[in-house]
């Protein structure tokens, strides 16, 4: 599903990732961990091609960075759902439209959009907030909207970059439960966090980064 082969990423003479290689199979739930600046966010950005590798090859869901044309990037991204720490919600659109936009981009008809958005809202338990603006929601609710938007397009891979970073323990637990449900449906998940409590005793695979190197890659 995801293959990194000798990937290096350098920002202004600072090596964010150094010659890393790993593979993630379909349906896996993988935690990417490590201290701040270890390269977790860079790794995720390379997967959804917000950044391109300086060296090495990344292949995701049949797309390979060495052959991928710029105009194909949007189609790759439609296979990937991303949950951002800072939510990245459209402030002038309500919850429904924030989620629906992911499907409108794909050219899905409004009737189907209505059904799928309501299903996604049901999963994140926010059906009653469909008409609210993001500014009227709590941090936990906003993060759940982001998750609904990320999964509504039925991506094969879901990336989460510190999704519980701004949330209290209860909200974080709620979000983790949603991620487990999504994974149970067969979606591959890469969850970046520096919080060990989130993956402790889960039995999931953990990739630990430090200064751009993989220092641990095994089950928790």
């Amino acid at each position: 599903m995801i293959h990194f082969k000798n990937v290096t990423k350098i920002y202004d003479n600072i090596t964010a990732l150094r010659n890393i290689s790993f593979s993630i199979e379909k349906g896996e739930y993988v935690f990417v961990t490590g201290p701040s600046g270890a390269g977790k966010s860079t790794l995720l950005k390379l997967i959804y091609l917000a950044e391109k590798p300086d060296e090495g090859i990344i292949s995701i869901a049949g797309y390979s960075t060495d052959t991928l044309k710029d105009r194909a990037i949007p189609y790759l991204r439609r296979n990937i759902g991303v949950v951002f720490q800072d939510f990245k919600l459209l402030e002038n659109k309500n919850v429904y439209d924030n989620i629906a936009i992911a499907l409108r981009i794909r050219g899905v008809g409004e009737r189907e959009i209505r059904e799928r958005v309501h299903e996604a809202l049901k999963l994140v338990n926010l059906r009653h907030k469909a008409d609210s603006l993001p500014s009227a929601l709590s941090g936990g609710e906003q993060q759940r909207v982001t998750i609904a938007r990320a999964i509504v397009g039925e991506p094969t891979v879901l990336l989460a970059d510190e999704p519980t970073g701004n949330l209290d323990a209860d909200n974080a637990a709620g979000i983790m439960k949603i991620f487990r449900e999504i994974n149970a449906r067969g979606t591959t998940i890469l969850f970046a966090t520096h919080n060990r409590d989130l993956y402790k005793n889960t039995g999931c695979r953990v990739i630990k980064l430090d200064s751009g190197n993989i220092v641990y890659d095994d089950l928790e």
Binding site: A50, R71, P74, R77, I101, A102, R149
Partner: peptide, 12 residues
């Protein structure tokens, strides 16, 4: 807003 659209897979 456009940056978000791009991340969600919007074409040019």
């Amino acid at each position: 807003e456009i940056e978000i659209y791009k991340l969600l897979g919007a074409t040019k």
